[in-house]
């Protein structure tokens, strides 16, 4: 699975970090999301799907 994050859309809600904190983090200056791991292992897939589903601005896209 490949994760694509659109930082221009991000509103720093922190939802993705709460859902999958080994895949997403927030940058120190303004809380905008950053990707820690763009190709998560299969056992992380459920959390990453959850993160994409709760992102309020649909900034997280998944490709298989």
């Amino acid at each position: 699975m490949k994760v694509i994050l659109d930082q221009d859309k991000c509103v720093a809600s922190g939802q993705c970090v709460t859902a999958a904190d080994t895949i997403f983090d927030q940058r120190d200056e303004d809380g905008i999301a950053i990707l820690l791991d763009a190709e998560p292992s299969p056992e992380r897939e459920a959390e990453v799907r959850q993160a994409a589903a709760v992102c309020p601005v649909l900034a997280i896209r998944l490709e298989s």
Partner: peptide, 17 residues
């Protein structure tokens, strides 16, 4: 909205909270 919101997002980010 984004310009102003981004000025105060840092202290609310998950790790700081």
């Amino acid at each position: 909205h984004a310009r102003l919101r981004r000025m105060v997002t840092a202290p609310f980010m998950v790790k700081r909270i």
